[in-house]
Simulated assay, not measured.
Amino acid sequence: MSSIRQFQVTFDCAQPERVARFWCEVLGYVAVSPPEGFATWDDYNLSLLPAERDSWFACTDPSGAGPRLYFQRVPEGKVAKNRVHLDVRVGTGLVGDERLATLQAECARLTELGAAHVRTLLADDENESCITMQDIEGNEFCLD
């Protein structure tokens, strides 16, 4: 029998701390503490060579239930649709108009944080409504 493995979700991005703090707001996560020996992230970054500063950031679920999110700076920008994306489960157990209203309210909250609404897929005979969005650097995610 195989064992269950813990994992983290890694985001390639231009501004790791900015994107991480956005996702903290989306998911209720918290930023990880700065590396051992440093009181703040600013202290840590100042200890690095200029080219290495602000190259990564991470956040975690304070309850310990969700995966760690890791954000790493990459030189290239986003050029294509994500092959993997997060579904933020804000409408679980809700159906019809109640579900759509909940998704739309969360969409409005996240838009104020800098996310972009891409499209709303309305319920049909097989699926409930969901909303496709982009984070502050254009990475797609869904409100489900």
Rank of each mutant, 00 (worst) to 15 (best):
A51T: 00
L46N: 14
N139I: 06
F7G: 01
Q15Y: 12
V95R: 10
A123T: 10
I131F: 10
A108Q: 12
C107P: 04
G64P: 06
Y44Q: 08
V95Q: 08
V74T: 09
L48G: 04
D135I: 10
L69E: 10
R68P: 00
F38G: 04
L49G: 08
T92L: 12
V84G: 10
A51Q: 12
F38D: 00
F11Y: 15
Q6W: 10
R89W: 07
E137H: 07
L27H: 10
P50M: 13
G138L: 09
D12A: 15
R119G: 03
L100V: 01
N45P: 00
D125F: 04
R119L: 13
L94T: 01
V26A: 08
E126K: 09
M1L: 08
P16I: 09
C59D: 02
E17R: 15
D61F: 08
V90N: 06
N82F: 08
D97C: 02
S63Y: 02
A105G: 02
Y70D: 01
F141E: 02
D12F: 14
A108R: 11
N139R: 11
L122H: 15
C107R: 13
G93I: 04
R89H: 05
L69I: 08
Q134R: 15
G64Q: 01
Q6I: 06
E128R: 07
D97M: 03
V30I: 05
K78V: 01
Q15W: 05
R89K: 11
A51C: 04
D97R: 13
A31Q: 11
S129Q: 08
L103C: 01
R119P: 03
F38A: 00
F22K: 06
E126Y: 10
L94F: 00
L143G: 02
L48T: 04
A123P: 11
G64L: 05
G77V: 04
G37P: 00
A58F: 04
L103E: 04
N139S: 12
C130E: 14
R53F: 02
L103Y: 00
V118G: 03
A14G: 15
Y44N: 07
Q6N: 15
E25D: 15
T132R: 11
T111P: 07
L122W: 06
A115L: 04
P34A: 00
N139M: 07
A20I: 01
L94W: 02
I136P: 02
D97G: 01
A80Q: 13
L122P: 09
D87K: 07
V74G: 06
D124S: 05
P34E: 01
T132E: 13
D61H: 03
L48S: 03
R119A: 12
V118H: 08
L94A: 03
V74Y: 14
W41H: 11
E106G: 01
K81N: 12
K81W: 02
R83Y: 05
E126Q: 13
A31M: 12
A80M: 11
G93R: 09
I136G: 05
C24Q: 12
L27E: 03
D135F: 12
F22W: 03
F71D: 07
P62D: 06
F71C: 04
P16N: 09
D125P: 02
D125E: 15
G114Q: 01
K81M: 10
E98I: 00
M1S: 14
V95D: 09
A58D: 03
A101E: 09
E106A: 04
E52G: 05
Q104E: 14
S47L: 02
P75Q: 08
L110G: 08
E52C: 09
R119H: 12
E137M: 05
E126D: 14
H85L: 13
